[in-house]
Nucleic acid binder design. Structure first.
Lengths: 183, 183
DNA sequence: AGTGAAAGCTGTGTATA
DNA sequence: TATACACAGCTTTCACT
């Protein structure tokens, strides 16, 4: 039995049956408030979090743990400002592969995700196969990265580099209020 | 005087003078180890972090605080799995604006960053102006988001939506070893 | 800058409603 | 499930090196 308002669901808020791998959990108003706070400040002390959402510390802690166990919160991470560590350039690479087998995709994605310059990696629909967000110190370093780490991979057909002027975090993915259908 | 190995620098690791806004700080080996751990687990207890990097808890705490004060670590955030909150679709929008004044850019970026579906937002060079990473529950919701929240903005000239099949975090931005020139 | 010990506080588990 | 209470353990401070 769950320790909090988090509940496993078999159907989406819109009534569709779900693929059996990922099942959404039902979040009540307090769970959503907890998540919203932790997205912004992942290191807030449990006591203060409890005050903000109007719960006793022990109840709040039980909910946070439940959210983690249910996979709603998949982790906590420090955000590093790349400019402060001398990596003032950011870019998004579009990458097209020559071969689209599952094995080659997995190998390529794994190799990219291990590189210290790679911030995010998306496998996408459309004419490109991957989008890769990277940081670098200089344009020379960026060029070296693309040539040595990406283009040099035999599975890569083509790459296109887009320079990023600035980046912001959004609010999402923020849990939205469930639709009336589920209530 | 600094409490740790973190030092303000006036020049990059390659000897170039820096713009006066963002100055990299010098990180020693222990600082880099701390950052690497906190990128992966932002909620690790200070005692365990100290053990991992081979420092006493008090020294470790002083370094973490120094890294935060120097802006190397800009924040700690919970990562939410959108699939677990019923938002199983992810997409990247390319947005072109009609007008490129600083004021219109600021207004548009601010409005987008406040939306609960928006995960990341990049102002980029090239033919597109913005890339926006968003989550949604259904293709209808995604369509509604694009039409109601993006295209409806008078400054938006055109949008193009790319569906994301999967996404991974990379290791970066991980502080790299300084080049020999700075040692 | 780092260490170690002391003090205060937070996180955590149990009992209760 | 929420709360209250109690204990263990962590965070934090400070004097010293």
């Amino acid at each position: 039995m769950p320790l909090s308002g988090v509940r496993q669901l078999d159907y989406t808020a819109k009534g569709r049956p779900l693929p059996n791998i990922i099942r959404p959990v039902r979040l009540d108003e307090i769970d959503r408030a907890i998540v919203a706070v932790l997205i912004q400040d992942g290191r807030i002390p449990n006591k203060e979090l409890a005050d903000r959402v109007g719960l006793a510390p022990s109840s709040c802690l039980a909910r946070v743990r439940s959210l983690i166990e249910n996979g709603v919160i998949s982790g906590f991470h420090a955000e590093v400002d790349p400019r402060r560590i001398g990596q003032g350039l950011r870019a998004i690479l579009r990458v097209q592969l020559k071969e689209h087998s599952r094995a080659e995709n997995a190998r390529f994605a794994e190799a990219m995700a291990k590189l210290p310059q790679v911030v995010n990696l998306w496998l996408v629909a459309g004419e490109d196969d991957y989008l890769i967000e990277v940081v670098a110190e200089t344009t020379d370093d960026l060029s070296d990265f693309v040539l040595d780490c990406v283009t040099s991979d035999p599975v890569v057909a083509d790459t296109y580099t887009t320079l990023v002027f600035s980046r912001r975090r959004g609010m999402g993915p923020m849990p939205l209020e469930p639709t009336s259908a589920t209530r």
